[in-house]
């Protein structure tokens, strides 16, 4: 084998540190706020780059994003972190994709680019669907390992340690394969200035959904989005007796 062709899908989401707010029309959240790369996708990119740094033969790391024009910034960040090139499928207003749509699209990309390893975030922090990786593996008929906290590749054999409730599980599979990343996998690097500059010169291909000729029509309908009820203020009790009588009053005891 001449080296891995790794595909890393990345998504532009509302920045983790921003508190999302429901929009006036209650159809979604206010998107006029700071956006950045989905934190789990940073882990994916980082892992791909580390595979290469660990001397696993890697032929190419391709960063891919489907989303609005600004998603290109996220791909540039991925390239500054070490991806070799990017593909941006520009989705206009009303062309938002659901996980199945993304999985179908990724399948096409995998086929077109002859990828043999796809590293995805286990979920994106905006929709929290946590489905794309699994659907993609299903559509491709590939092995999958979700929630990876450690990845090792030797030849075409992949060992993944994944986090499960109460412990870890070690899986072994053969390439090609889909891996989704979990928080403890690595610590993503900063984009350094020299690399940000180099990333500007790396190729970024622009495409549209039409280029892939897919049915990505949404199957879900958002009925209404509302804020969770505000938390009621607590009370301070003086001592244990006070707490017990308060709990009794509330019928909790």
């Amino acid at each position: 084998m001449s080296g891995l062709r790794i595909l890393v899908p990345v998504k532009r989401v509302i920045d983790y540190a921003v508190k999302p707010r429901v929009n006036r029309t209650q159809t979604g959240v206010d998107t006029n706020v700071k956006h950045s790369m989905n934190p789990f996708d940073e882990l994916s990119i980082e892992e791909a780059v580390r595979l290469r740094e660990r001397k696993t033969p890697v032929q190419e790391i391709l960063a891919f994003s489907a989303g609005p024009a600004k998603s290109a910034d996220i791909i540039r960040t991925a390239m500054a972190m070490g991806a070799d090139r990017g593909i941006h499928v520009q989705c206009n207003e009303g062309e938002e994709l659901e996980p199945l749509g993304v999985a179908k699209l990724l399948k096409k990309v995998v086929e077109g680019e002859k990828s043999d390893l796809v590293i995805l975030g286990k979920q994106s922090i905006d929709d929290d669907a946590a489905q794309t990786g699994q659907m993609l593996a299903g559509l491709l008929g590939w092995s999958q390992a979700t929630q990876a906290s450690k990845v090792q590749i030797e030849g075409d054999s992949v060992t993944v340690v994944r986090e499960v409730d109460g412990g870890v599980e070690t899986l072994k599979a053969k390439l090609p394969m889909v891996i989704t990343t979990d928080l403890r996998l690595n610590e993503p690097r900063y984009a350094s200035l020299p690399n940000i500059m180099k990333a500007k010169k790396k190729p970024l291909e622009k495409k549209t959904l039409k280029d892939y000729g897919l049915d990505t029509a949404p199957r879900l309908k958002t009925v209404k989005v509302t804020e969770p009820p505000a938390r009621k203020g607590g009370v301070k009790v003086d001592d244990v007796d006070g707490m017990i009588s308060k709990l009794k009053e509330l019928g909790a005891l």
């Binding site: 934190p39 900063y190 350094s192 200035l193 500059m197």
Partner: peptide
Amino acid sequence: QNFLEHVMESGIVSDGVLAQDQTQ
């Protein structure tokens, strides 16, 4: 970007990073 390119290329700055998100 213009500023960063300038200070890097003219050697004023030896190395640097640019935060990509709020957490950084």
